[in-house]
Every structure is written in C-alpha cells, then in structure tokens.
C-alpha cells in the first residue's frame, strides 16, 4: 500500500462522479427533489458546520466509536490470548462465540436497548461487539502463528511466562490484532451511526434521521458526505499509524489479513 498522496486516475474518477452529480441534479434527470445538487449539499454542510452543530455531533459519534473500539478491541485481545494459551477456555467458550458471531450486529440492537438503555452504554456496547469478534479471531490466529522456537528462545534465557507473553507473544501478534482493528474500523463507524439512528438524540445518526423526517435532502447528503470522508480519513490515519507501529512487519513483506 502506497501512502503517498499523488493525484491519481482514482482522484480524477471521483471528481468526474461529483461533477456528474451536480449536473444530473441541476438538470433534474432523476425527477426528484431528493437528489439535490452537490453545491446545495455543500452549502448545507458549511452552514451546519459553522453553527457548530455538525462538529459537535461528529465528535460525539467519534467518541462513542473510539470508546467501543477500545473496549471491544481490548476484550478481543485478552480473550483471544486466553483462548490461544489455555485450550480449556477455548473448548468451553468457543462454541458460544461461534454461535453469537454470525448474528448481524444491527439485529442485536433492539434487545440491547432493553438491557442497556438508549444512551452511550448501549451504543458503545454495540460498537464494542462489532469490534470484538474480528479482533478475537485475528488474535487467536496470530497467537497460533507465533513460532514455537521464538517462545523457546525466551525460556532458554530464563524469561518467565508473563514477560514472554508481553515481550514476545504480544508484539508478534500485534500485526494480526491491528489487522483485526483495521477490518472493524469502517464497520464500527457504520454501527455507531446505526445505533444512533435507532434511538436517542445523539450523534450524526440522529441528525440523519431528523433530516430525513424533515425532508431536508441537502442535509441528508451532507451527512452521507461527512460519513464518507470520515470513513476514508479514519482508514488512512489507521494505515499510517499501523505502518509506524509495525514497520518491521511491512518491511518483511508479511500479510495478516486472514
């Protein structure tokens, strides 16, 4: 993956599509007011950004997403390490995890509302659940891929189990963990917004629903734009962070996308 920001044919394609958007809406090819011109969308975006409404909502959504990522990711790493190092726990809880994993996260939101309410607890939990499973499976895969020789090396120097786990296993598994996070990142944003759309008056998801009910198409597409840019930006930022953190992994030309 190249990180340099040179204008490519991809950028040109995006620009063409945006132009097509503007023209198609101005000439009303779709015969609907729900397809507003890009410029109207940008005006709406600028307006609600300057009033401070959108930045506040986006901040709230990002905060919930980050909290969910941290909680679900940490749980995934701990449980994954546990499953991989103590086969007993994997036999005990593995089937349950396999049973819960395929359930689409939006489907568990209504029951979660009953238990956790409508506020941050519910929304952060929903994001955490989304992140938990990819990180868990990647962690397990990563621990399984740690070479027996590497751990034996630690033992031959008289290094204890805890230090081996922290100084050998964890760094070795880190690329897998980060890959799990990268896979969940886009999903975490989507799920945070979906949870906000279902209930409560929080975040960009609620804004989207309000604008939909108010029939304000430019604001709806402004939200979509914000989400697209957020998703892209988060992924980019994560890639940069990942390349810094595990430069050795990329230098060795390894892949951990599972």
């Amino acid at each position: 993956m190249r990180l340099s920001a040179r204008p490519s044919s991809g950028v040109v394609l995006v620009a063409c599509l945006l132009l097509l958007w503007e023209v198609s809406a101005r000439l009303d090819w779709m015969h609907t007011p729900n397809w507003p011109p890009l410029t109207d969308v940008l005006v709406a975006l600028a307006h609600d950004t300057l009033t401070g409404e959108l930045p506040l909502l986006v901040g709230g959504t990002l905060w919930r997403m980050a909290a969910g990522l941290a909680a679900g990711g940490a749980a995934g790493v701990v449980v994954g390490m546990l499953f991989a190092t103590l086969p007993m726990t994997a036999r005990l809880f593995g089937p349950m995890v396999e049973l819960v994993r395929p359930i689409p996260i939006p489907a568990v939101i209504p029951p979660l509302v009953l238990f956790l309410g409508l506020d941050n607890t519910m929304k952060v939990t929903v994001v955490a659940l989304t992140v938990f499973f990819p990180v868990l499976t990647n962690t397990m895969q990563g621990v399984a891929a740690v070479e027996a020789d590497t751990l034996a090396m630690g033992r031959t120097f008289g290094i204890g189990p805890l230090r081996r786990a922290l100084r050998i296993t964890l760094p070795a598994v880190l690329p897998y963990i980060l890959a799990g996070f990268r896979v969940s990142l886009a999903l975490a944003l989507v799920v945070a917004v979906v949870a906000e759309m279902i209930a409560g008056e929080q975040g960009i998801g609620h804004y989207l629903v309000m604008m939909q009910f108010a029939g304000r198409a430019p604001e709806i597409y402004a939200t979509v734009l914000v989400l697209a840019v957020l998703g892209y930006g988060l992924n980019r930022a994560f890639l940069v962070m990942e390349h810094r953190t595990i430069h050795w992994w990329f230098a060795m030309g390894r892949q951990a996308d599972g």
Partner: peptide, 19 residues
C-alpha cells in the same frame, strides 16, 4: 429529556423496559 425515535420500534418496548 426527549428521545426521538422514528416509529414505534423502540418507543413502546423502551417504555416496558423502563428506558
């Protein structure tokens, strides 16, 4: 404290659950 939902999807269940 108003909580806006777009339909009965969470309103009545949320009432039962004490939300």
């Amino acid at each position: 404290d108003t909580s806006t939902t777009t339909g009965g999807a969470t309103g009545l269940p949320g009432l039962i659950a004490g939300q």
